[in-house]
Design a protein around this nucleic acid. Structure first.
Lengths: 207, 207
DNA sequence: TCCTTCTGTCACCGATCGGTGACATGTGGT
DNA sequence: ACCACATGTCACCGATCGGTGACAGAAGGA
């Protein structure tokens, strides 16, 4: 909100790479603030303090700009598994909780997830594919050489818990709760996380 | 060219109640088709085949129209518990699966849920409050006189599973899957539902 | 120096948005 | 008959949308 003046007609950085980066960061800020609604070349250009024409000239359109933005956001975690010790259930619980914290403090990712549930453009598909791939690369590390208990469809169960985490995070951010469960304070989230841990323990062993 | 047109402007039902109902049904159709995006007085009026002016005159605006529409959609299930027999886990599993089927075949409700995750208007809050209330009224019936196992935060666990169901339903409708789990065919959903059942059984007893 | 290319700026277009005033027409009361 | 009112129709407004053409200035090679 502070910066960007332009009284004289000629007075810009004249640096394409820097300008492109400004657009990318501006797009992320707009999404974080307003979500998918109200997302357009006019808003992004105003946020970047540059002219929308450059979006078309440099990126070829809004979609390609968003793709470039999504590519930058392709390394969410990676930290969560710094010490991959403990049993399968312990490792998975740890990475799950770390991911939950990360997601809850990342409004851009939240808006992106919400957008994926409302629309289905090719751009969104590509962004989601990149994220899924990163997730897939992570799984062997958490799995290690251990096998999940028999009779348990681990991919399905993990998808369920991840889906619940996504949904509750988004509901907490917008409605402040879900299904009678409040999701505002830190205590609320600790209660929810405790329930998640219980489900994980009951599924993968209570170690 | 003085004076032109104004010949036959007369041909309507001239029935306020019927027209209001046309608007409500048109709003539901627009939401089912296009979701929250592109939802406006122009689209609804065109879908209803009536003039948008009447939306303001009869409802007082778009928000009130959507509220009226949401009020009509306040009786999702109720059938699911026709035979409330079996243990707590069995009853809950039954109503859960019935709700899943219902949700998966109701595009309006899906778009409404997705909308709630992206925005947070007062109108959405009211609609959600009505739905939550209906859910609350249902719980005593499924709970009966039985108590959930100790050490289990039943409201939290149920919220988690419901959240997962919502999220996976929406992802199945838009992206066709989530977290590597395909959610397109009936077999895909049976696999997911089997995992849900497993979680319910491990939580509430495998009866 | 001149000329070309790239970066940035601005004005403008057509389409569409939400919202409203003016008006024609049907209906019912007296 | 007349009149008051409710219903429906249409044209129009200002704002905003995505998108583009025309132009000014800076950089760099010859």
């Amino acid at each position: 909100m502070p910066d960007r003046k332009k009284a004289p007609p000629a007075k810009a950085t004249r640096d394409r790479e820097a300008t492109e980066q400004r657009f990318i960061e501006a797009a992320a800020r707009v999404i974080a603030r307003d979500g998918a609604a109200g997302l357009g070349v006019n808003a992004i250009a105003a946020e970047a303090g540059a002219d929308k024409k450059l979006i078309y000239r440099y990126f070829g359109g809004l979609d390609r700009l968003l793709e470039a933005m999504g590519a930058n956001t392709a390394l969410w975690l990676g930290h969560a598994l710094s010490a991959p010790q403990g049993s399968y259930g312990e490792r998975l619980t740890r990475v799950f909780l770390a991911y939950a914290d990360n997601l809850r403090s990342d409004p851009v990712l939240q808006k992106l997830l919400a957008w994926e549930l409302a629309s289905s453009s090719d751009t969104l598909r590509r962004i989601d594919a990149a994220r899924s791939k990163a997730m897939y690369m992570l799984m062997p590390k958490v799995r290690g050489d251990e096998k999940p208990p028999e009779g348990v469809d681990a991919p399905a169960v993990n998808a369920i818990l991840l889906a619940a985490l996504h949904y509750m995070t988004l509901r907490g951010a917008t409605m402040g709760g879900f299904s009678g469960l409040s999701l505002k304070t830190e205590a609320d989230w600790q209660r929810a996380m405790s329930a998640f841990k219980g489900l994980l323990e009951r599924t993968y062993g209570n170690d």
